[in-house]
Design a protein around this nucleic acid. Structure first.
Length: 507
RNA sequence: CGGGAUGUAGCGUAGCCCGGUAUCGCGCCACAUUUGGGAUGUGGAGGCCGCAGGUUCGAAUCCUGCCAUCCCGACCA
């Protein structure tokens, strides 16, 4: 008995928790994140500083994100268009705060030709200098508003509801895979409206779209809020955002929606004739999310064994691994799996049958765990005899043996359960790591001991916010939209405050 | 752009002080045995030792310059 018990223990305690080549997230969270991105085949470094190569597996997640969001944008009346990558330098000087925000991180095109210098070196042809330098877009407000000027004369031309899927470039000092790369992929919506109210409603609508997407597709709970003046987008009157909490207790801004007022309309002289025949400047919004969402997805859910992807965004939802010794066994299994695949596909579930004979089952198990495939089905001869399969969940790392009969329905239900479970786990984590604090000492202590969201009173001044940032590296992530009003005292200055705001150290 | 560090095979490394054409592991290729949690054995391939100079009979090793990358700050979706 003892020997058997022992044996069982050994089998049960085999640590399937760590993946080869991935450091534990408790040991070094940043390194864990980098390891995961590389080992799971999502992306790799490129020869260009700060720019990454998004590999097919990573890109397929982006494609899913794009497809869902694009549908949501269309459902709210938007259309896609495309504007140039290069923006004349002069456009940037038209909106003062906008240029201040981006000037320090722009890549500039100065020439349009290379030549051979005679020694076999390719050099810039100084004779091919551009009259006016071109900026590689860090965002497209300027070129779009320059264009809108030509599209808008009357209130009848409004609203304009346009989105663009594009790449942009911001020459960041320090970069990180998916979270902050020099070039990144995103979507930017740019809308034009006849009234302030309508523009604000649009800004809020798109914030809700983002929050809906984050929570229901990415399984990522987010706080909807507004940025303080310090953190506001360059050129915006009001910036709304969704903020998420990562597993290391740092906050990540997952999306923003800006009410731009008439700033860009004034900068680019975009006027229209109102219903009562008066001239007015157009009201604007812009909103965007980027490939950073993939970084959020990884950091919010994954573990030491690899990625944990929410089923709704997983490129492969179910992987089937055959276990066999002889060709007849594989043929037998394949015949069954072909039927299962058809059933699952009919339900809109993506399946991969990994029948490579170049890798052994254990290697495949590890690979798909690393890649975050939500469900794994393993089938061997034993199962074929018993009419069963082994079903393994990625989120809980549990396995069960189930009947082949009704398997497709079971899988469908399980995927939904996994989606919900991942969300709940993230939600509970955020709840445990969101704390109300009332003194500055407690504030600082929490940042060191249990980092997360800190809900605290603030006197509303940029100076206080700045000082707290300098002393603690924590910033005001947002003023939550559903904030309850209560009397309190600013944690730093003791000045009266009417509501709490959300602080955290952030990415 | 300030502070620190590092560049050796696809990846991770040893060698560097004390000069003599490079170590080990993973991965890769072939064959065999294997296949219910990352297989084993045998054999094999792979290197402008970041780049350019210098010292020396001889440089991965010493000297000079350059380039690149990473980490910590300031900046940031």
């Amino acid at each position: 008995m003892g020997a058997i018990y022992n044996n069982c223990r050994v089998i049960n305690s085999i640590p399937i928790n760590m993946s080869k080549g991935v450091i534990s997230k408790d040991e070094d969270y940043s390194q864990w994140f980098n390891d995961l991105v590389i080992k799971s085949d999502m992306a790799e470094y490129s020869p260009v500083r700060g720019c990454m190569i998004i590999k097919p597996y990573g890109y397929s997640i982006w494609e899913k994100i794009q497809a869902v969001l694009d549908g949501m944008f269309k459902d709210t009346g938007h259309s896609n268009a495309y504007f140039p990558l290069l923006i004349p330098k002069s456009f940037f000087s038209k909106e003062a705060s906008h240029v201040d925000g981006f000037a320090k991180e722009c890549a500039v095109v100065t020439h349009y030709r290379l030549k051979n210098d005679g020694d076999g070196n390719i050099i810039v042809d100084e004779e091919a200098k551009l009259e006016e330098e071109l900026i590689i877009r860090p965002t497209s407000e300027t070129i779009i508003w320059n264009t809108y000027k030509g599209w808008i004369q009357s209130y009848r031309d409004l609203p304009i509801l346009v989105n663009q899927w594009a790449n942009v470039m911001r020459w960041e000092m320090r970069t990180r895979l998916f979270l902050r790369t020099s070039e990144f992929l995103w979507q930017e919506g740019h809308t034009a409206h006849a009234t302030s109210d309508e523009a604000i409603a649009e800004t809020e609508q798109m914030l809700n779209v983002y929050a809906d997407f984050a929570e229901n597709w990415m399984a990522l709970p987010v706080v909807k809020g507004r940025k303080t003046a310090n953190e506001r987008f360059a050129g915006a009157l009001d910036t709304y955002c969704i903020e998420a909490l990562m597993q290391d207790g740092k906050a990540l801004q997952a999306g923003t929606s800006h009410f731009l007022g008439q700033n860009f309309a004034k900068a680019f002289d975009v006027k229209f004739t109102t219903r009562d025949n008066k001239q007015d400047f157009v009201w604007a919004t812009s909103w965007g999310v980027s490939t950073r969402l993939i970084g959020a997805l990884i950091m919010a859910h994954s573990d030491d064994a690899g990625l944990v992807l929410p089923p709704k965004l997983a490129p492969i939802q179910v992987v089937v691994v055959p276990i066999y010794k002889h060709q007849e066994e594989l043929d037998n299994i394949t015949a069954y799996v072909d039927g299962l695949k058809k059933e699952l596909k009919a339900k809109g579930i993506s399946v991969k049958f990994d029948n490579r004979d170049t890798h052994r089952p254990g290697a495949k198990f590890a690979e798909y765990e690393l890649k975050g495939v939500p469900l794994r089905v393993a089938i061997g001869s034993r199962d074929m005899t018993n009419g069963t399969v082994e079903l393994a969940r990625r989120d809980t790392k549990t396995k069960e043996t189930v009947n082949q009969e009704g398997l497709a329905q079971h899988i469908e239900a399980l995927l939904e359960e996994i989606q919900n479970n991942i969300y709940k786990k993230a939600f509970d984590f955020r709840a445990e790591n969101t704390t109300e604090v009332d003194t500055y000492d407690e504030f600082k202590r929490m940042l060191d001991e249990q980092p997360g969201f800190l809900s605290a009173h603030w006197d509303g001044t940029p100076e206080t916010e700045q000082k707290i940032k300098e002393e603690t590296k924590a910033t005001i992530r947002c003023i939550p939209l559903d904030n309850k009003q209560e009397e309190g005292k600013c944690i730093l200055t003791g000045a009266p405050s009417k509501q709490r705001v959300l602080f955290a150290r952030a990415y």
